[in-house]
Amino acid sequence: MGSDTSSRPGIRVGPTSEFSLFFHVKPGHGEALHQALRDLQAAPGYRPGDYEMPIASIHEARFVPFDDDTRLLFATSFDGPWDAYMEDFASKPLRLFDAIFQHVVGYEGLPTLESVKDFILSAQQSAGGYARNYGGTVKEIRKAAKVNEAFQQVLDDPDAAEALEHPALRPLLDVAAD
């Protein structure tokens, strides 16, 4: 595993940077790992359609067991340079995945936050390629979705067309046709 600091914090697109961790699964823990991932998938915030993961600064999260369950990938997109948040990440968010990381090599028995941090960094690999289809942070995207929902409600009003004729609303009228 490389922990070459020159590759950090990886590729950034707008405010968001890619963040991937590759772990070794403890021998014989494949099934237990899958169970832990199923449990996570059933937890609030991770259920299909929930869209409210407990960590507010990541766009998505995936855990991928691979190589016959001997390896585990955790991949996400993080708002901000994740390396600045390493100490933060090593304390609170990592704990949220405690049940999963118990099945990977090197997680247990770490005495200090510094060693937890080293554990994460030793698993980190920067992407060779990374691109995004939309800009903005999670907070901006959520707000944009909320604004769009409100706008669609406006458009459902029979008087919307007339109201949008006001010059101040011109930018909204321009996107109201479809």
């Binding site: 707008g14 405010p15 600064s57 340079p81 600045a84 100490e87 903005g136 942070t137 907070k139 707000k143």
Partner: peptide, 21 residues
């Protein structure tokens, strides 16, 4: 780093953390 430089770079010089980059 995690006190002065973090506050300066992430909170004062940037707005990502409040959703206003």
């Amino acid at each position: 780093k995690r006190q002065f430089e973090f506050v300066k770079t992430q909170w004062l010089n940037d707005g990502i953390f409040i959703g206003a980059p």
